[in-house]
Amino acid sequence: MKKQHAFALSALASLLVAGCATGPSTADLDQMAATVVKSSFSDKGIVKVSAIAPEDINVACTAADVAGKPLDPAVAEALQAAQLKSIKWPADGNYMGDWKAGEKLAQSGRGLTWSDKADTANGGNCYNCHQLDPKEISFGTIGPSLTGYGKTRGVIADPTSTASKAIIEYTWGKIWNAKAYNACSVMPRAVHKGIITEKQAKDLMALLLDPKSPVNN
C-alpha cells in the first residue's frame, strides 16, 4: 500500500511539473487525484471507501464553486428533484418523537468512526452548526439559529393548519436529505446517508416543533 501510494504521488508530481510546459488537462489531474485517493484509503471497520465516491450532485457543486459561479438553476432544479425522490415520509403519518431524546441527539457529535460498531447510535451533531436553545452561549454558526423554530413558524399555535403542515413536511425532508431543497447545501443528508435513523429524525422533529422543547421556550 505504501509503495502504491508513493508511486501515485510521484506520478502526480511528475504530471504537475510537466504541466508547467505542457499544461495538463483537468481530466488528467482528476484521474491522478483519483489514483492517489484509491491508493491512500481502504475499508476499515464500519468506514467504507465508497463513502467518498463522487456523486453527480457533489461534482456539479464543486465545479461551480471552483468556477466561482452559482450552480446553473436548471441543473440545480434537476438535481434537487432527484434528491427529493429519496425522502421517505412516515408511513403512519406521525412526524414527532421525543424532544428530550432529540435534544441529546442534537448535542452529540459521536459516531461514524472506524472504531465504532455497526450498531452504535450516531449523534446528530446539530449543535456544531446551529443554535438550538436560546440559553446556549456557545454554538456553531455555519447554519442559521433554530431558536423558536416551531413558534416563529406558527406550528405551535396551529399545528393542523395548511401552512404548518407544509413546514412540518419541509422540516422532515430537510433532516432526511437537505440537498432536496438546496443542491449545494453543506448540511449533512442525515437519514439518506445513514447518519441517523428514521426514529432519531422524529426525535429531532420534536425538538424543533414540540411546544415543551427548550427550542420553543
Rank of each mutant, 00 (worst) to 15 (best):
A64S: 11
Q80R: 12
A63D: 04
S86H: 09
V47D: 05
A60D: 00
L12G: 10
L16H: 08
A60P: 07
D43R: 11
Q80P: 12
D30M: 01
I57Y: 04
S50R: 14
L79I: 08
K44C: 02
A82P: 12
G45S: 00
L79A: 10
C20Y: 07
K48V: 10
K44T: 09
D28W: 02
N58H: 15
M32F: 14
D28K: 08
C61G: 03
S86L: 15
P70F: 03
D30F: 02
A21H: 01
V75Y: 06
G23L: 00
F41E: 04
L15Y: 10
V66K: 00
L71S: 09
L71Q: 06
L71H: 08
L71I: 11
A60H: 01
A33P: 08
A78W: 08
N58E: 14
A82Q: 10
G45L: 03
S50N: 13
D56L: 10
V36F: 02
S42V: 10
L29K: 07
T62A: 11
A74D: 03
A82I: 12
L12C: 14
A67Y: 01
T22K: 00
A82S: 15
K44A: 10
A74R: 12
V36L: 09
V37M: 13
G45V: 00
D43V: 11
K48R: 14
P70W: 03
S50H: 09
Q83E: 15
A51P: 01
D56F: 04
L84I: 03
S14D: 11
L84G: 11
V36K: 09
L16C: 12
I57F: 07
S39C: 11
A13G: 13
D43A: 09
K69T: 12
Q31C: 12
K85V: 11
T26M: 06
T22M: 01
A60M: 01
A33I: 15
I52N: 06
V59E: 00
I46M: 06
N58C: 13
L84W: 11
T26F: 02
Q31W: 05
S86V: 15
A63W: 04
A34K: 14
P54Q: 01
S42D: 00
G68T: 05
I52D: 05
P54V: 01
A76Q: 03
P24M: 06
A67L: 07
D30Y: 00
K85G: 00
P54I: 05
V47I: 07
M32Q: 09
T26R: 09
G19C: 05
V17C: 06
G45K: 02
A51Q: 04
E55F: 08
K69M: 10
D56Q: 12
G19I: 02
A21Y: 01
T22S: 12
K44D: 12
I46V: 11
P70C: 01
C61R: 06
L71P: 04
A34Y: 06
I52K: 08
V59K: 00
P24G: 05
A34M: 13
T35V: 15
V36D: 03
K38P: 07
